[in-house]
């Protein structure tokens, strides 16, 4: 039983990584939000299993916070946002998906190498997933760089937060409770502000294309 549960955490970690790749190559905004929700749900499942395995009660709370923010509130907000902004069916043109994927694979290799020495030091039973968590962070980072529209950039940002949460769970069974609350609060407020912001951008430029936001260059 125990061994199966540990394996299931590894499975969830693998799913997280797959979802990160899927988001990297996904062109439709609506599907992107679905993928993000799924990623949040996987994170919750992984956290619950780790909590059960290690008997760390505060991890249940942490999972609950993630469930509420990343699976329920933020996706709802995102759905509403794209509804109101009328970008629900937007399809972004991504150049060079194969190249992006290849670079993504290199990032994963890099993340695994970076995490290997640290993971060895961790006493956590799921320390081997730290590499995956770091890979998710780097992939989300890359997603933010390659996207030209505001909403996918924000989703990349949020997905990076998911990766960080998973890293905390994998390496140290989560951060102290007060810190987790603080982080969740920051993410929610940040999401709210970004929502306000997108309306401002749209009002100003009639589009959510970030390429409009490249006027302030050094001359």
């Amino acid at each position: 039983m125990h061994a199966y549960l540990i394996q299931s955490v590894n499975l969830f970690a693998a799913v997280l990584l797959l979802l990160s790749f899927a988001m990297l190559s996904q062109r439709r905004i609506l599907t992107l939000i679905h993928l993000f929700t799924l990623q949040g749900a996987t994170l919750v499942a992984a956290t619950v299993v780790v909590a059960y395995l290690t008997d760390q009660h505060h991890l249940y709370y942490s999972a609950a916070i993630t469930l509420v923010t990343k699976v329920i509130v933020i996706p709802t907000l995102l759905h509403r946002l794209i509804d109101k902004l009328n970008v629900k069916w937007d399809v972004e043109t991504l150049i060079n998906i194969p190249t992006t994927m290849l670079i993504g694979i290199l990032l994963v290799v890099f993340a695994f190498n970076l995490a290997l020495p640290i993971a060895k030091l961790s006493s956590s039973i799921v320390h081997s997933t730290l590499g995956i968590a770091l890979a998710c962070v780097l992939l989300s980072f890359m997603m933010m760089i390659t996207r030209a529209k505001a909403v996918p950039q924000v989703i990349g940002f949020l997905s990076m937060e998911n990766g960080l949460f998973f890293a905390a769970t994998a390496a140290t069974y989560g951060m102290p409770m007060v810190v987790e609350f603080g982080i969740a609060f920051d993410v929610l407020v940040g999401m709210f502000i970004l929502g306000v912001f997108m309306f401002q951008i749209r009002e100003q430029f009639d589009s959510l294309d970030i390429s409009h936001l490249e006027k302030l260059k050094e001359d």
């Binding site: 980072f141 950039q153 940002f157 940040g190 502000i193 912001f197 936001l213 490249e214 006027k215």
Partner: peptide, 17 residues
């Protein structure tokens, strides 16, 4: 203004990352 929105967006995203 257009410039201030751009500045704030950069501020948010870069500092966030």
């Amino acid at each position: 203004t257009a410039a201030s929105l751009e500045a704030a967006w950069k501020y948010f995203i870069l500092c966030g990352v």
